[in-house]
């Protein structure tokens, strides 16, 4: 059993289902981590241990994978993920200014989450929407041509 304040019984059930359906698939650790993170919101270390036991893999392997890929987060995430594109095109178009303003306004740097868990800020590499540079994504929504003021306006819409 896995006991953790951020994991509800429903989440636990979902985690067990995910592990059970992938136990015998070689190379399943990345999809399993992805789905578990989707269920819980992040990957607490206790959960990583639990997954490694479930998949019968060394803890170091699972931990190694979880820390290698930028998709996975071992710390709690905000309700909304703000991804600011620091790709070349956005950089040339001055995205740094918007990024700095967001950071200053909410008091978080890249990779950090606000204390009220409202936003997690991430600097990401090229979102592939260079035609709209500078670009940011809030959850699954893409916003183009963002100036610092607009970026803040957009964020205010997310509670």
């Amino acid at each position: 059993m896995l006991s953790h304040p951020d994991i509800t019984p429903e989440m636990h059930q979902r985690i067990d289902e995910i592990i059970a359906s992938h136990k015998d698939t070689p190379g399943a650790v990345i999809p399993v981590l992805r789905m578990c993170q989707d269920a819980v919101g992040y990957l607490p270390v206790e959960l990583i241990d639990y997954i490694s036991r479930g998949l019968n893999l060394p803890r170091s392997d699972v931990y190694g994978v979880a820390t290698f890929y930028s998709l996975f987060s071992l710390t709690p995430r905000g309700r909304h993920t703000v991804r600011v594109c620091l790709g070349t095109a956005c950089y040339v178009k001055g995205v740094k200014e918007a990024m700095d303003r967001i950071g200053r306004t909410y008091g978080i740097g890249s990779g950090e989450t606000t204390d009220d868990r409202r936003f997690s800020l991430e600097a990401v590499r090229c979102l592939g929407a260079c035609g709209l540079a500078p670009v940011m994504m809030v959850d699954q929504n893409t916003y183009g041509g963002i100036k610092p003021d607009q970026a803040l306006e957009i964020l205010e819409k997310y509670e």
């Binding site: 620091l86 790709g87 070349t88 095109a89 950089y91 590499r125 090229c126 592939g128 929407a129 260079c130």
Partner: peptide
């Protein structure tokens, strides 16, 4: 596709 500034594959 990871090169910043390339989105043809997408």
């Amino acid at each position: 596709e990871g090169d910043p500034g390339a989105f043809m594959d997408r």
